[in-house]
Design a protein around this nucleic acid. Structure first.
Lengths: 248, 248
DNA sequence: GTTAAAGATGTTAAAAAATAACATTATATT
DNA sequence: AATATAATGTTATTTTTTAACATCTTTAAC
């Protein structure tokens, strides 16, 4: 990378964008030269070419965080859960999109509490709040920004948790809760074991969809928070197990 | 925003990019329609139009993340370090801006190796590459997205590392290396202990600036990689300790 | 139900931008 | 200085984007 390319990259990072004609003027070179420079920067993962120029390459870790948009349904569930949280308690918040929505809500509340999680997006969402955040170490999954594996389990086994809050990929009112990753299922089982109380938060549409691995029986949990489209029969089956059901 | 635009945004966020012709095909509409949709998404701050399509709008995150831009000096140091890395080795990459620059370089190379780190940005930068990433658990610092504390130390103490790569906040050619956080210093000391080899990468301007806590003597490290503005006297003092110095 | 209006989508010609190919200039090497 | 090599500039060609307008769809009013 030559002097001009470096300065171009610096200007790009400083201002957030580069316009070919403007840069060609600034450096006193042909626009073709700037085109070649931007091509070079893109090739090296430092920039992304846009319509008439380029922008800095979006940092990789930002993208997955943006992926999980908060849906209206998830936000309602999160608000319902918030009412049930004891201030100053220690909560284990497992990876998932609904739990992430809840974490974003918590960040706004800024309560003095401790959150333990295996999700990088959740930890990031709680960054620079009054909440003390402990991230469980482990192997980074290639499918999502969270940590699982034996090391994660070992790490977690030394904690004692007041409340576990987790989501699920699938649920059945008689069978229990499912996730699509075996490693994650193991971690979830252990999480429930070290926690005094377990709450599952999930959209009602997850009911009837079984995923790869079961990580908990219905009776293993203390409460389920879901939206108001939960079928009456499912609700009946759950409460029969002594599990509380809260809807939005 | 209509149904198609919603789904288009969804696909955009999921895959990280949208190509006009591909999307037109997928939705069974004219490419002009997708152009109009992307124009709309850009206008609403949800996407940035690129050469033949668009990417999701890079969200600006907390200041500490954005400040860590790759500078030309850091990139040169990172390139120099890359030449010295054994493929398939296990490297402990400590938190820092220079180490983050190196991680970004590594992500482009996509070598089959294992990286252990206590930095969330570093772990994220290596997400979805062939590199196996292990994130050390611990307490999230409020000043930067990394993990420290007794739990982190306990976690780390069970590993054996080929090579530790770390930066520093301050350095002195006679006294050693400094950082501004006591917890981090403790972790750094332990990191050096569990590693066969230690390389410090740092900009030469850090020399002569002492920070709060010393975490290593000069003689504790095997090599230092810095830029070519390192003073001759500093270089002399370092090599006298049997420590190799590489400059860009 | 009909009809007008507004909005969305499709089509195509014109404009703009990007590329490729080659010419020229600068830089490095011997 | 001669030569090779790399970088930059120029321009013709191709591709992409835009703008303008035609057509189709939806909505709302009557």
């Amino acid at each position: 990378m030559n002097q001009r390319q470096q300065e171009l990259l610096d200007r790009l990072n400083r201002s957030g964008k580069a316009v070919i004609e403007v840069e060609a003027e600034h450096f006193g070179v042909a626009s073709m030269t700037i085109r070649r420079d931007l091509r070079f920067l893109e090739k090296n993962g430092l920039a992304v070419q846009t319509k008439k120029g380029a922008i800095p390459k979006p940092k990789i870790y930002a993208a997955p965080l943006n992926m999980a948009e908060d849906s209206a349904v998830k936000r309602k569930i999160a608000v319902r859960l918030l009412e049930m949280i004891e201030p100053s308690s220690t909560v284990l918040l497992s990876t998932g999109t609904t739990t992430l929505t809840f974490a974003r809500l918590l960040a706004q509340q800024n309560l003095p509490m401790t959150i333990i999680t295996n999700s990088i997006p959740i930890a990031s969402a709680l960054f620079q709040t009054r909440i003390k955040v402990i991230l469980i170490g482990g192997e980074l999954r290639t499918t999502s920004l969270d940590l699982v594996g034996p090391a994660a389990e070992k790490y977690l086994s030394e904690y004692h948790i007041d409340l576990l809050v987790t989501g699920c990929d699938g649920a059945d009112a008689q069978q229990g809760f499912y996730t699509s990753d075996l490693n994650l299922a193991n971690l979830e089982k252990l999480s429930a074991k070290v926690s005094d109380k377990v709450i599952v938060i999930t959209e009602s549409r997850k009911f009837g969809r079984k995923a790869l691995v079961k990580f908990a029986e219905i009776a293993d949990v203390d409460a389920i928070i879901t939206d108001n489209h939960l079928k009456a029969i499912d609700r009946e089956l759950i409460t029969r197990n002594g599990v509380e059901v809260f809807t939005t």
